[in-house]
Design a protein around this nucleic acid. Sequence first.
DNA 1: TCTGGGGTCCTAGGACCC
DNA 2: TCTGGGGTCCTAGGACCC
Length: 405
Amino acid sequence: MKYIIHIDIDAFFAAVEELLDPSLKDKPVIVGGLPHERGVASTASYAARKYGVHSGMSLQKAYQLCPQGVFVRGNYQLYASFSRSFIHILSQYTPDVEVASLDEAYLDLTRCRPLYASFSRAAREIKQTVEKELGLAVSVGVGPNKVLAKLATNRAKPGGLYEIRPGREDEFLKELNIELLPGIGPKAQAVFRLLNVSKIGDLWGLPRAALRSLFGLNGEKIYLQSRGIDSRPLAAASLPKSLSRETTFLQDLWDRRLLLAHLAYLCDRLALALRKQRLFAHIIEAKVRYSDFKTEARRRLLVTPRQDMGEIFRIARELFLELFSGSRLSLRLVGVKASDLVRGQSLSLFEPYPKQQESLGYAVDQVRERYGFGSLLTAREKMLQDVYSFEKDRGFILKTASLTK
DNA sequence: TCTGGGGTCCTAGGACCC
DNA sequence: TCTGGGGTCCTAGGACCC
């Protein structure tokens, strides 16, 4: 029998904002953008949820429901730094920690049995320590595996601790709504509505083969998890599988020069992220979303993995133009993604990697870190200069955006 | 109510090979 | 001349999660 703890920071981004500005305490705080912007709420404080606002909701809708809400764009660097402290605290209790997201983690205390007189008491202590050291409320769930621990956390919210006792699993699961089960999203819910399945207990009546044919491998997972069966071990930290950067514009764009300039800016940010983690990509992908919300992507496999902005942009540009050149529609989004990532220096017998490009990248990063982004402009980056001013004053650019390609 | 940004994993079809 | 049976790689797209 394993002893798994799931721990989740309540309304994380909103809670950090309240910590920084105590006058926000108990106010409906909505993080994600300003009400007129194109976007969704990434977090709503519990005060905001009382008005029906929740994460994923469009900001315009959130404003309608809660015009007195405090809307903030958010500071993701800051949240990431809180997240690192959060994980650091958890690592004091066991080496078996899986970081599930910025504000969420699993702990496996099974191996640490000799250290703790009582697991229940250990769970309480972890919760108290995190709350004291971070100043943020957390919810904690305890169970014999990941899925039960996570469902227990959901029961514990906000700010509580819930432990599923051995032998009580079915009783706990039976009356839960199916959408609480990880892997059941909007599409699967629609299917289950047709089947008149709304509680996890209802799922028990469906044959494994039926779920398999409806949802493939995910159906198998649903079959097992609905019964509280989950043998997945905690995942060890690993290299990221992909890194990407994308932007949804305030208004759809048609001007090819502006779009390419923005793509260059995204490639620059992506290259920076790759260099920070010393990663090289075998696959570069460009993505567009048209004004009708249809989304397309084109990718290219590279013989030699790359991390330099110049090459990433050269490829992304070609892929982007393949997509956009034939389009009659303007674009609401452009993006670039790097995947099939490897760490460290590339080794190709046939195509020696241009090492000086890499060191140039690192050098540029260091200068920027010390003197700011605009301090070092090579000829190659001239185009980016336009983009940074574009970022500074998007409104102006959008107003003056030409109507021809 | 017009729908973010950053990820993971799965599926399906075509090319290609033996 | 009317057409096998894999296996793997590559690309594109979609469901889902926080």
